[in-house]
Design a protein around this nucleic acid. Structure first.
Length: 647
RNA sequence: GCUGAUGUAGCUCAGUCGGUAGAGCACUUCCUUGGUAAGGAAGAGGUCAUCGGUUCAAGUCCGAUCAUCAGCUCCA
């Protein structure tokens, strides 16, 4: 029997050999690190006998597959520990996730922190017993009996009876007295799991259904060594350090207060500078690309949203309507606007449009209000009042793909400028199985999705498909970045819409003199200014590039006798339009520098007697240190240039 | 919205068994005039989230509300 390894080398083995044997034949270390094996593209247990010629690769913790196996087995290990410590606990679902695993547990008592520590200790103890993990296949009917009678776990029985209805044979993994219904694969033994951290407990509904019983979901992460766990903990601490809510307060960027309302961020002067710079940047870029600015009110007649179809779709996540009654008893209802599109559509149809006028690109930083569920609110990244860098492009069908490409190009330009280089792109398509969720006809959707794909392919972007992620009026291209804690956030978006033009009866006069229907593109490179800046804060850890820094330069005189010269330098910076501060306190230079470093000011200009005599400044860059002396004109010119370049 | 946790000075946090509130940093004033990440001294700062209850007495115990955090569910 011939086994082909990933590097192309071929080895001959007797039939029935296992992955572990193959790993051992390559090296002792690999045998130790091996967690599973991929045989002809299929991930399986290390102990599964291989009976014919195959291409194999050994899976270790370094690969995503390896982590998946490791953490999935860890969830079983945790379940076993819980079962030993808390007899009677029943188990729901326990998968591996991106950063570890969880298990949903039904148990009458609430678990607390101490319980977690005890479970951790028990897991390590079980790991120390180095129990073999054994796979057993059995007919589904037999498994139902097993889980009902022996394991007494109603949740597994439910999975067997419903989710796995059509399946003949299922697999059960055993380790000591513990057994779990699971397709696998799993680790060969529990001993591989050497470091355990249970991170938190939360509630979850059985099968994600809020009408079903609530279970306790215990999250954890495990590693093959303590060293890896320590690194993981260090990453978590770094994430906490970068949390935009913490940095936003420390750096005086924004605030949230119940006196205004939850989820309603207030921009403080320093945060407003960042937002204003970003807006100025995008406005300038859009001007170059043929967008025209408009302004629209913050509320709109409710009829507008009924017409657009937003109201019925999203009435539960809107602030309740404002009702106005005049003396005659006539009633009008207004909605705090949850999106800008309807206003823009009315601007479009306020005039007769010729095919020669298209595309028309209306743009506005439009503030919208959505009553997000209280549990969803999260600093700037999930707020109830936020501002979209919203534009609507009205174009002819023959211009559509070009216009989508332009919007993608702008979005990419924005992300590159801001230093987001790891952006995932999702083509968000509709779910054909759930057509009722969407507006428009099947043909229109087919066309729209074809156009979106064509544009994405032409722009050469790498994307993945998200079925059911489309909005109700059309497919989208979504740009997704991760925050410091690894959570994903959708920022920019480009959306195609054939539905709104119908609803608002938008038209243009074609070359044939007849009325035609334009197509609308909704696009927002930043998405929401609040969310974008929230993610930007975490991305930069508050160390903003010079052009965005709320305070760009601080002038630090060493002693009082150079205050006059320091003021002169400060005045020159201000005159050049550089955001500068001056620290005239009677503190030592070390303290002034420390405070400037902590407030993450990019440039410090230290001035003492030597600098005064030479008409120079000592330049110190944040996190870099002393960079030597420069003439005043020189430093002003260099900083101005760096700001202009948005470097 | 649901489940759980949390809420004490501007910030980070102590506060024991229920007996009228504490530290460090920041802030203010004074002294100090210094060379690349914390000079010294003094002072000021609190409706212990809010409302109600138990008690002779509540930061502490109980309940409700609000907010925040974690997760679930949702996301134009």
């Amino acid at each position: 029997m011939v086994i082909t390894l990933p590097d192309g080398t071929e080895k001959t083995f007797p039939a029935g050999i296992t992955g572990l044997d193959i790993a051992a034949s390559i090296g002792r270390k690999l045998a130790e690190a091996a967690l599973g094996i991929i045989v002809d593209g299929r991930l399986q247990d290390l102990g599964t006998p291989i009976t014919r010629n195959a291409g194999v690769s050994i899976v270790t913790f370094d690969s995503p597959d390896g982590k998946e196996i490791f953490w999935h087995s860890s969830s079983h290990l945790m379940a076993q520990a819980i079962e030993e410590l808390f007899p009677g606990a029943k188990f729901g679902a326990g998968p591996a996730i991106e950063q570890g695993f969880y298990y949903d547990v039904a148990y009458p008592e609430r678990f607390n922190e101490d319980d977690l520590r005890n479970i951790e200790a028990k897991m390590l103890e079980i790991s120390g017993r180095d129990i073999a993990i054994r796979r057993e296949e059995m007919p589904r009917e037999q498994a139902i009996g097993y889980f009902r009678e022996s394991r007494k776990d109603p949740y597994k029985v439910e999975i067997l009876e419903e989710t796995l209805k059509g399946v003949e044979t299922v697999s059960v993994y055993h380790q000591d007295g513990f057994a779990d219904l699971c397709s696998g694969p799993h680790l060969p033994n529990t001993g591989k799991i050497r470091a355990v951290l249970l991170t938190n407990i939360s509630a979850s509904y059985w099968r994600g259904d809020s009408s079903r019983e609530s279970m306790q979901r215990i999250y954890g992460v495990t590693f093959p060594s303590d060293k890896l766990l320590k690194e993981h903990v260090a990453r978590l601490e770094e994430a906490r350090r970068r949390d935009h809510r913490k940095l936003g307060a420390e750096l005086g960027l924004f605030m949230l207060t119940p006196e205004v309302g939850s989820g309603l961020p207030i921009w403080l002067p320093k945060g407003a500078i960042i937002r204003n710079e970003l807006e100025t940047f995008l406005k300038g870029e859009q001007r170059k690309r043929g967008y025209v600015p408009v302004y629209t009110p913050h509320i709109g007649n409710i009829e507008l949203y009924k017409r657009s179809g937003h109201y019925p779709y999203y009435s539960d996540s809107q602030f309740p309507p404002l009702t106005y009654k005049d003396e005659t008893g006539r009633e009008e209802q207004y909605l705090l606007k949850p999106m800008n599109c309807p206003h823009h559509h009315l601007i479009y149809s306020s005039d007769l449009r010729s095919y020669r006028d298209l595309p028309i690109r209306l743009t506005e930083f439009g503030t919208v209000y959505r009553h997000e569920q209280s549990g969803e609110l999260n600093g700037l990244v999930r707020a109830r009042g936020f501002t979209q860098d919203d534009s609507h492009i009205y174009c002819r069908p023959d211009q559509l793909v070009d216009e989508i490409c332009n919007a993608i190009d702008l979005t990419r330009f924005v992300f590159n400028t801001l230093g987001f280089d790891e952006v995932e792109t999702r083509l968000s398509l509709h779910d054909p199985a759930n057509q009722a969720k969407y507006g428009g006809t099947a043909e229109v959707w087919e066309q729209a999705e074809k156009d979106v794909k064509e544009a994405a392919d032409r722009m050469g972007i790498k994307y993945f498909i998200g079925i059911g992620e489309a909005s109700f009026y059309g497919p989208k291209i979504d740009f997704i970045v991760r925050d410091a804690i690894g959570r994903k956030w959708q920022l920019g978006t480009v959306q195609v819409d054939y539905v709104m033009p119908e609803r608002f009866d938008l038209s243009y006069i074609g070359s044939d003199g007849q009325k035609h229907r334009p197509v609308v593109i909704h696009r927002a490179p930043f998405g929401s200014m609040e969310r974008f800046i929230g993610v930007l804060i975490e991305h930069t850890a508050g160390n903003f590039p010079l052009w965005l820094a709320p305070v760009q330069v601080t002038v630090l005189p060493i002693a009082e006798d150079v205050h006059d010269y320091a003021r002169e330098v400060y005045a020159k910076l201000q005159a050049a339009g550089i955001r500068a501060e001056i620290d005239l306190r009677s503190e030592k230079i070390g303290k002034k520098i420390r405070e400037a470093e902590l407030s993450k000011i990019p440039v410090m200009l230290v001035i003492g007697r030597n600098e005064q005599e030479a008409r120079e400044v000592s330049v110190r860059r944040h996190r870099k240190g002393d960079e030597g002396r420069l003439g005043v004109q020189e430093i002003v010119a260099r900083l101005s240039e760096e700001i202009a370049q948005r470097a």
